[in-house]
Simulated scan of single mutants.
Amino acid sequence: MNQITANTPRTDRVLGALALELTPGSGAARDAVPQAEAGALAALVAADLAAFAPEAAALDCSLVAAHFDPVELLRPGWPLHQELWQLAAKAPRAPGGGARILAFGSHQGRLPGALSPSAEHAGGPLRLLPFVLDGDAAVAARVSARCEADLMEEGMAGAGTALAMQEAFGLRVEHARYLTVHDLCALTAMQYEHAGLAPLWPLLETALLSPARKAWLDAPPEPLLHYAGDGTVRMALFTPAAWRSRHAPAATVPEEDEEAHARLARMFGHYEARQRQFAGVLRAHGLAVEFVHCQDGARAELAAPAPR
């Protein structure tokens, strides 16, 4: 079971990403750059963010010099940003303190900690370089408010930054802009709506923004899901008869009507495919999926504590 401890992003840190929208049909030659090259990329990102919100220059700016798929960032507890922040917190400060620009690149082909992009999610058209701004709580809160209000609309990356990213990773950039994780949630919600996944988003959004809360997807003909508030989604599995009782209760089909029975069988097959689709999306976002065999009292069965 996933241990969920974080909630919405703290206002004394800014969790965000440089979003690289790739030219259609193109890919990336590299998913990470060596540590020796990472610092220059982080300096460009820090300069862009300070140009957008001048007080950001007073905050530590930490960057992963690797690019990820949105599903790798949008997970309960923001684990990728949390790992980045923890690594940055361990880095020594120079005498006299002051804001730091910290970059985490690869060494001998490996990134530190749990910062490695997944090959499973490589190749998408939108690639993200996560960053964290952290420091004095009052300054960070003001920068966070500015970012949440306007970063998505006004946070275009500088031309030099976009070119440097293009050369560093061997990719072709159509657009480069900065986003907070909340902006990324909003963007993903729109993309999922266009992909026919809108019914799943409210439950997924609860898991991301309020991971200790519970949520349901109970909207036939969609699958029945219960988010238990602990990083696990329980999904009801029905026999064909139980599915028909819940999803097609008014369908009275004579035993000899083979065409009608075949139609119901196809509908049940589509339902099972939808379950697999939802399970794949949820797992990509770092949620565990538990299938529970249910009968007529499906909601009660899903809400019941899982057997130990």
Score class of each variant (00 low, 15 high):
residue 177 R to V: 06
residue 167 E to C: 04
residue 165 M to S: 10
residue 204 L to F: 09
residue 203 L to G: 08
residue 206 T to Q: 12
residue 184 L to V: 03
residue 171 L to M: 14
residue 157 A to V: 09
residue 147 C to T: 03
residue 149 A to Q: 04
residue 175 H to K: 12
residue 158 G to F: 05
residue 146 R to L: 11
residue 216 W to L: 13
residue 147 C to E: 05
residue 173 V to Y: 08
residue 153 E to N: 06
residue 161 T to S: 07
residue 183 D to C: 07
residue 158 G to V: 09
residue 189 A to S: 14
residue 153 E to P: 00
residue 152 M to Q: 12
residue 155 G to R: 08
residue 187 L to K: 09
residue 185 C to K: 00
residue 164 A to K: 07
residue 184 L to P: 11
residue 215 A to E: 14
residue 162 A to E: 12
residue 147 C to G: 02
residue 218 D to A: 15
residue 150 D to G: 00
residue 175 H to R: 15
residue 192 Y to D: 06
residue 151 L to W: 00
residue 193 E to T: 12
residue 188 T to Q: 15
residue 207 A to P: 11
residue 183 D to P: 05
residue 148 E to D: 14
residue 168 A to P: 04
residue 163 L to D: 10
residue 186 A to V: 06
residue 196 G to A: 10
residue 214 K to A: 11
residue 204 L to Y: 09
residue 203 L to E: 06
residue 195 A to E: 15
residue 213 R to K: 13
residue 173 V to E: 05
residue 156 M to L: 14
residue 165 M to L: 02
residue 178 Y to N: 11
residue 220 P to V: 11
residue 191 Q to D: 15
residue 169 F to Q: 04
residue 191 Q to V: 03
residue 222 E to D: 15
residue 153 E to H: 05
residue 214 K to V: 15
residue 206 T to G: 03
residue 201 W to V: 09
residue 178 Y to A: 07
residue 178 Y to F: 15
residue 215 A to C: 11
residue 160 G to W: 08
residue 193 E to V: 03
residue 156 M to K: 08
residue 168 A to W: 01
residue 172 R to Q: 14
residue 218 D to G: 09
residue 180 T to P: 14
residue 148 E to Q: 11
residue 208 L to T: 06
residue 182 H to W: 06
residue 184 L to W: 07
residue 215 A to L: 04
residue 148 E to C: 03
residue 213 R to G: 03
residue 147 C to W: 08
residue 187 L to Q: 15
residue 211 P to K: 13
residue 185 C to E: 12
residue 209 L to W: 02
residue 160 G to M: 06
residue 182 H to E: 10
